[in-house]
Write a protein that binds this DNA or RNA. Structure first.
Lengths: 207, 207
DNA sequence: TAACTTAATGGACGATCGTCCATTAAGTAT
DNA sequence: ATACTTAATGGACGATCGTCCATTAAGTTA
């Protein structure tokens, strides 16, 4: 078995992901509506029939691209979170920092996210995949807030954790929208300080 | 000059707005991508050439629909705000309540908003019109927060008002996204209480 | 009523769109 | 080397797409 990276004539898995990459690139450039099969295969440098061969159709390719984009985001978050250990406050801050970092929050990502959002309500295959910042992330945040909320005996910990989770995700969502519509005026520092004001208001002893 | 509402054979203004209404209805049902001229005129019950006659083309019709939708939202907010007088705290709460009311926040509206959002970054005519919850609203909120912030001498009033404005709009944005993706699980009461926690954290003497 | 302006119609048009398949090529097993 | 399986190609296909215009109708002015 040779390494064969250079001159592989056949590469089904590679071509599959090339198509997905080309699709995401096209969406970030011209939006979903103008992302046609012709444009995708031109970007990918592959032949027309490949979409049907590997995905069965354009619809499934879009769904696979949505899934890949979602994973890309989540793994980006996860990498940051892994580094900070298990203290819940640090996990929360890692999520916030990562979500607002240039690595994850940039023009390409905001355009793709909102393009899929716009299509999610009417295209099942996409909706399943682009839930509110992914259920995985939501669960991670809620678990962290639940631990923190236990230190506030004056409040119902479930309600507090729920509000913190919901609020934080909504706030971050809004930051992405703002970035999308106004990438030049956007300030990561201001965004972060506002998020900190929010969670600091809920958990004054921790943030 | 007769009233002629019943049997008007020609009605350019009426047909124009019928086309816009049909466009928004189509977008809320099948998204922007599948909103075709054929579908629009079928919904409107008008003839094919009318799109070109009244708007010059589909692109301009979409832009006009985006504008109409934006106005629809803003005037809805404004009506609520007019009722509560000039006290800044009451203006803010009126905006929040209106934004989360069923009149403004519903499946149709969230679908249309996000459909336009997804197209905004790549279609100039739409982007101009669907800024972050409209500059008019942003200015109104900021003015109210500026007055309130003057009562907090420990903070820079400009920074405080800016953070409150930015944060509130982002939070409401996020609520809309959550509603879009999960209309059944969404609770207006929870959403409102979270918003109140946020502004209450910034302005403890007022909210 | 006649002449004129504006609105509305709906089909024809070329230009895409996405799908699919007959054909060729590459890789594997016998 | 041969037979076989899987990958890749690219053009043909019917089905739409949005635009536009020749034609008809409605309303207005003279």
């Amino acid at each position: 078995m040779t390494a064969q990276v250079r001159t592989k004539k056949r590469d089904p898995k590679g071509n599959r992901s090339t198509l997905i990459r080309a699709t995401l690139e096209s969406i970030s450039e011209v939006g979903i509506t103008d992302t046609t099969v012709s444009r995708i295969i031109e970007k990918a440098g592959l032949s027309r029939g490949m979409v049907h061969l590997h995905f069965g159709g354009k619809t499934q390719l879009l769904a696979a691209a949505a899934q890949a984009f979602s994973d890309e985001y989540y793994f980006g978050i996860d990498r940051h979170v892994q580094k900070v250990g298990h203290a819940p406050e640090r996990i929360i801050m890692a999520v916030v920092t990562a979500d607002l970092s240039e690595e994850l929050l940039n023009e390409r990502a905001t355009r793709i996210l909102h393009a899929f959002r716009g299509a999610a309500s009417t295209h099942t295959g996409i909706a399943e995949v682009s839930g509110t910042r992914d259920d995985r992330l939501r669960d991670m945040i809620r678990a962290a807030f639940s631990k923190i909320a236990a230190d506030y005996p004056d409040e119902d910990p479930d309600v507090l954790a729920r509000d913190a989770t919901f609020g934080l995700l909504a706030l971050l969502e809004g930051m992405w929208s703002d970035y999308l519509l106004n990438p030049n005026a956007f300030s990561r520092e201001v965004a972060k300080s506002i998020v900190c004001r929010f969670i600091g208001g809920l958990f004054p002893d921790h943030f």
